[in-house]
């Protein structure tokens, strides 16, 4: 995950969301990556895409976001929605025939995110390729894409100052304890031995702690935990 910008590190930097999506695209070899999120607390919607300008204009002008079946279904889904699973409705054909003219494939997947306050996000990736390669690509990247989707969503939602305060999730004693040992230089196996829990339990709590601190990396999570006086600097 180290190649990607940690969005929590570059607060306020213009263009960071576009840049992040371009990095995701290049790292996994997708044609395009798009994020759309809605923040009901602030009453705002946010969209960031790597699509060509002409498609963005056409999509907005035709108001495709009102009928785009990938968004309609994914918005209510828990699991990632592969676009091949979506019923071939009139709207599906309308949006994807137009997309094809702009060189955008109908092979894609949309990963839904649900936040704590009714906020939702959707990260979509697409690539014009055959079925076999597509399946392999997604099987390889889907776990990272889940983390990336939530990281992007949290960063976008938290760009609203009120939401940033509201959306802070408390850490559990165990998460804080594990962060503290990590800050002290202990490995996950060391920590598992010290706390007499499984290695995987350490890993799961560390991942949860990172996400609660809106960080992609453990280093950034520790920096934030120290800044928030959750743990002591060592």
């Amino acid at each position: 995950m180290t190649e990607l910008i940690d969005l929590s590190e570059v607060a306020g930097q213009a263009g960071k969301f576009d840049c992040f999506l371009e990095q995701v695209r290049d790292r996994f070899g997708f044609d395009h990556v798009a994020y759309l999120g809605s923040n009901p607390v602030a009453g705002t919607m946010h969209g960031y895409v790597t699509y060509p300008e002409e498609w963005k204009r056409h999509y907005t002008h035709q108001a495709y976001h009102l009928i785009d079946p990938t968004l309609r279904i994914a918005q209510r889904s828990i699991a990632p929605i592969d676009w091949s699973r979506i019923e071939q409705s009139d709207n599906f054909r309308l949006v994807f025939c137009a997309a094809r003219e702009f060189g955008i494939s109908d092979r894609g997947v949309t990963i839904p995110v649900r936040g704590p306050f009714g906020d939702t996000g959707m990260l979509s990736v697409t690539r014009d390729t055959d079925e076999h390669e597509w399946r392999a690509m997604i099987a390889h990247s889907i776990g990272d894409l889940q983390s990336i989707a939530v990281h992007m969503h949290d960063a976008v939602m938290n760009s609203d100052a009120f939401s940033n305060v509201l959306r802070r999730t408390p850490l559990s004693s165990r998460e804080i304890e594990i962060l503290q040992w990590t800050a002290a230089g202990k490995t996950q196996q060391d920590i598992a031995d010290i706390l007499n829990i499984s290695h995987r339990t350490v890993e799961v709590h560390l991942r949860s702690a990172r996400e609660k601190l809106f960080s992609l990396t453990t280093a950034q999570a520790i920096a934030r935990a120290i800044a928030q006086h959750l743990i002591y600097p060592i």
Partner: peptide, 21 residues
């Protein structure tokens, strides 16, 4: 599907809106 023909895009998501917390 609820919302499929709605003219409001991405209204605070169906079902989540009225849940406290």
């Amino acid at each position: 599907l609820p919302g499929q023909t709605s003219s409001v895009a991405l209204s605070p998501v169906i079902g989540l809106g009225h849940v406290p917390g």
